[in-house]
Simulated scan of single mutants.
Amino acid sequence: MTVTMGPDLDVRDLTLPLTVLNGDDKNHIVLKRLVRPAWPGELSKAEEDESDQTFLQAGGSAEAMTLEMRVESKGGGYTQFIVGLPFSGDQHGAEMVSIAVGKYRYDVLPNEVFNAKQAGDVMIYYFEHDTVPPGYTLRELIRTV
């Protein structure tokens, strides 16, 4: 599903799709900012590729999903993080939670499991600020140069 949003965004356009994720055939949503305002199909292949470089994505089901954010690194390249809910304390030794995303399973820390409402709040903030809310944790997954 592709949704094109502009400045008159109705936040339900961001949050409603999260409520229908089932971890199986409906298993992820990607929020990305286009390099320029355009309708789907109007971007060149190069513009599409550039638009795909940074994003916030949710994967799993409405009851248990992960959020990943990919950002441009200061020294060039990109870094991908798994987002976690605000957490204080030590998770050393915490039991991982397994989340189904289509045919894959992802093991995440307990504070990295979101429900649709929690993920929707992060999606709205990301849409408005191009990052996650202050206090949320970021665990590095992948860095490319």
Results as ranks from 00 to 15, higher is better:
60 G>H: 08
22 N>C: 11
109 L>W: 12
128 E>C: 02
47 E>F: 00
42 E>R: 10
112 E>I: 00
92 H>R: 11
55 F>V: 03
91 Q>K: 01
109 L>K: 06
77 G>S: 10
15 T>I: 10
93 G>Y: 04
98 S>Q: 13
55 F>T: 01
26 K>Y: 12
67 L>Y: 09
42 E>T: 08
53 Q>P: 02
114 F>E: 02
116 A>L: 04
94 A>I: 07
119 A>K: 00
81 F>C: 13
67 L>F: 09
67 L>I: 11
26 K>E: 13
63 E>H: 08
106 Y>L: 15
106 Y>N: 12
131 T>H: 09
16 L>M: 10
69 M>K: 09
24 D>M: 04
16 L>V: 13
26 K>M: 11
44 S>F: 01
52 D>K: 10
63 E>W: 04
21 L>T: 02
96 M>S: 09
28 H>L: 10
88 S>N: 12
101 V>P: 03
102 G>L: 00
88 S>Y: 09
28 H>Y: 14
68 E>M: 10
79 T>G: 03
43 L>F: 03
124 I>F: 07
14 L>N: 02
103 K>Y: 14
129 H>W: 04
123 M>L: 15
80 Q>W: 06
47 E>I: 03
89 G>S: 05
49 D>W: 02
104 Y>W: 13
103 K>D: 15
123 M>Y: 15
101 V>Q: 02
16 L>E: 13
41 G>C: 07
63 E>S: 15
123 M>A: 07
18 L>N: 04
64 A>G: 06
121 D>I: 08
39 W>A: 15
56 L>K: 02
115 N>K: 13
9 L>V: 15
110 P>W: 08
98 S>V: 14
121 D>V: 05
104 Y>Q: 15
102 G>A: 06
24 D>G: 09
72 E>I: 01
